[in-house]
Design a protein around this nucleic acid. Structure first.
Lengths: 215, 215
DNA sequence: CGAAAACTTGACCAAGCGGTCAAAAGTCAG
DNA sequence: CTGACTTTTGACCGCTTGGTCAAGTTTTCG
């Protein structure tokens, strides 16, 4: 089981209208279920129930449980990496990173299931996306790390290893989604108050940006 | 299933020498297995194989799979929180935080299984330790957050919300353990080179400490 | 309309897995 | 040594779960 992030639609098997709709429904239900319980912890029955579809019917659209899982991952991956893609070498370093961090936090708060899905997958050795990580993802990160390194060498950012900076941004921005129950246990009801997301964003932003600003 | 972090040894049932030894063996094997596959993803057979013990024998020491899981969590929790416990209100703020971060990174690099065990548990809603999180852990964090807040109000640290600071320290220090495969996919072999742990520690330390130093 | 294709489902199967049990093997105090 | 105990195990059970299948229903399109 491994993802190549292909653009589907192999050969000439056309997808019908019903297929389009039902795949959508299944993948949405599957994201919820897989992100909550992990691959092994989720059952096809849960997904079929959540999608209001009989199990054999669900298996009609995706031959195996793994196929659903891989499809969900594939679907969400691109969206998840878009902000990093958009990091602009020609922009202002601090402003670019601020925007990157903000978008990551925004995504984590609006689609925590996606964040947890990846967290779980990677936590358990990334069996389904290992090759993706060491090809496409590595390439993207190498590219953006070079940009950051360039900024540093031009004296527009405090000296910091670009890879570690990226890891730290990932870690901090996804923490609130992945470890939500822990954050809730400690902060209680205020997590649900309006403005909490902004407040967290502000804390993360100020700490990281302070750490990388030239002084 | 829920942990109260009790000190075991209920009533007067004495533990024999053999019990002592075998429980140890089982818990060690269980940590490996559970941290790699999660609760649902692990099987009693895996644990019994890893511990070189027959399944019924293993069940002789722990009646149910959950009991093993809870015991492992319980065992590791205290150790895991020790560094935060040791944060000294009377020490130098920056020095205290440097020591805290260093110890967390050290633990993550030396016992990544423990880190992953918790990460997985929390990621999936902390079914076994939810009550612990909102009692003991909350109490500890509240206490230490007050210390940090005090430091800030005395002008010995840059103004930052202490809770978010703690979350960020957790996020960054545990990232290298929890998302090891991703880090490896991107950085390749250098992860195994001597000094990598120190290099990561340095990056995390410099960024966070820069962010909280008064200037 | 009518038939081919697409879609849906109840019933079913085999493997995996948590857990039991009774009986055998080992340990240890008196 | 012996008998009470602790420990160990092979065989087994029932439930869950991924996946199949044949037969039915609906959609599509000439």
């Amino acid at each position: 089981m491994d993802v190549t992030v292909n653009t589907r639609k192999d050969a000439g098997d056309k997808t019908t209208r019903i297929q389009e709709i039902n795949r959508r429904i299944i993948l949405e239900a599957a994201l919820d279920v897989f992100s909550a319980y992990g691959f092994r912890g989720s059952t096809i029955d849960q997904i079929s129930e959540k999608s209001g579809m009989s199990k054999p019917n669900l298996l009609y659209y995706f031959k195996r449980k793994q196929d659903i899982y891989v499809a969900v991952l594939e679907e969400t991956l691109e969206e998840w990496l878009q902000p990093l893609h958009d990091l602009n070498p020609d922009g202002d370093p601090v402003e670019e990173l601020r925007r990157y961090i903000s978008r990551k936090i925004d995504m984590s708060s609006k689609r925590p299931e996606a964040s947890r899905l990846f967290a779980n997958e990677i936590l358990h050795g990334a069996p389904a996306i290992k090759s993706f990580l060491s090809t496409s993802l590595k390439k993207l990160v190498d590219e953006k790390a070079a940009v950051i390194r360039q900024w540093v060498s031009e004296g527009r950012l405090a000296p910091i290893d670009p890879y570690h900076l990226i890891f730290m941004i990932w870690a901090t921005t996804q923490h609130y989604a992945d470890f939500d129950v822990q954050v809730r246990a400690i902060l209680g009801a205020q997590v649900d108050r309006a403005g909490f997301a902004e407040q967290s964003a502000q804390a993360v932003l100020s700490l990281i940006l302070n750490g990388i600003k030239v002084r």
